[in-house]
Design a binder for these strands. Structure first.
Lengths: 200, 200
DNA sequence: GAGAATAGCGTACGCACGTTCGCTATTGAT
DNA sequence: ATCAATAGCGAACGTGCGTACGCTATTCTC
């Protein structure tokens, strides 16, 4: 019908597809993404959607990557004005709690959803999920380590234990929000994270 | 081919179907359950499998319920010899950590997988997931409350905060085991739970 | 201005899905 | 001995899926 096809338009179309795909995936999982459904909702042809990715698996991975980039923009980057260490860590954690409490995507955090969905299924999608989580954990751990090295945390502080508890709080907050719409969980997550930083 | 159909045999067949379905669902999600696949693996016809449940949605719910009953048998019931309160709670928590570290199902805890999978999709399956989680949380909370009332925990102890942190540790342990096969997470989960019971 | 690239469309394909229907053979109660 | 129930089978259905192919129209490069 309307074959516009400049390079700029193509990138824009690709972005529209990924945005909608991320919304769908956040509610119904990466497997809920369907080329036919995307085509219908974006008012284009199945083959038009397909061509941008070549394979459904690629579409799923690109969707996850896009969601991760958005997450990073909102959660991590604003904290980079703080020096590495405890100050930056606290801002990152606060931002991530805010993100989980009021996510960009309608079905909540896609990284978290994809984690459960693909942790038992070998393949490229699972690898992508693992990489995304590895980066997020690496970011948190780097500031924990910096805080210890900078003397902001007590000597003998167990970095991996704190990391575990911070991640745990995020997972539990996401579950409480998505399954039970429990707003009170937000405060509990904040407190749990603060407690993770005060090992006795 | 071999139409045996006593009432006892029927129940047995139903159990075989649900057992295999639970295994599949633990690895690929409740949506990974497929009547055709079950029929093939169990060497029976699609219609034979179908007839036991009438609807795929019912099959999914029954699978979840079966997995929950098995979980309950292994985690909660052995602890009922302890008196309600802190002692029973510690046994339940220890059993649940053991369960997550070495689950009955190949893909890990089905309740946890189903939580992420269906938290954003209204319907009977989601309701079943919510109910299962509500029962599990209720069990934990009952012993926390009993512990407070029995004076085993300090006055002013925040039961909901502790419950949040215990559940969080379980979710994080499951994620660490399934995505990263991180055995060290077992000890961290145990420690996180113990810390949840020692509010400062 | 000519020509290679390519965004997007339309059509078609094979496949797996859940569900339906009618049948057969066995059971279990009368 | 009879007869209603029913476990399970086999075949068929409509649907939606991912993917492949060829085409058209526009853009970008030279």
């Amino acid at each position: 019908m309307s074959p516009r096809r400049s390079a700029a338009d193509a990138l824009l179309t690709r972005g529209r597809i990924l945005s909608r795909a991320a919304e769908i995936a956040s509610e119904e999982g990466l497997d809920g993404i369907t080329i036919g459904r995307l085509a219908e909702e974006l008012e284009m042809s199945k083959s038009g959607v397909h061509k941008h990715f070549g394979t459904k698996e690629t579409l799923q991975i690109d969707t996850l990557d896009k969601a991760f980039v958005d997450f990073w923009h909102r959660v991590v980057e604003p904290a980079l004005t703080e020096p590495p260490g405890l100050r930056r860590l606290r801002v990152v954690c606060a931002n991530s709690v805010d993100y989980l409490a009021e996510p960009l995507l309608p079905g909540g955090c896609l990284m978290t959803a994809a984690l459960s969905e693909y942790d038992g299924r070998p393949g490229a999608v699972r690898d992508a999920v693992a990489q995304v989580w590895s980066r997020w954990q690496g970011q948190l751990k780097a500031d924990l380590v910096a805080a210890v090295e900078g003397g902001e945390l007590a000597g003998g502080f167990d970095v991996d234990q704190a990391l575990f508890e911070i991640l745990a709080a995020g997972l539990a907050l996401n579950a409480a929000m998505q399954l039970q719409h429990d707003q009170a969980a937000v405060g509990r997550a904040r407190r749990a994270i603060e407690r993770a930083l005060h090992q006795s």
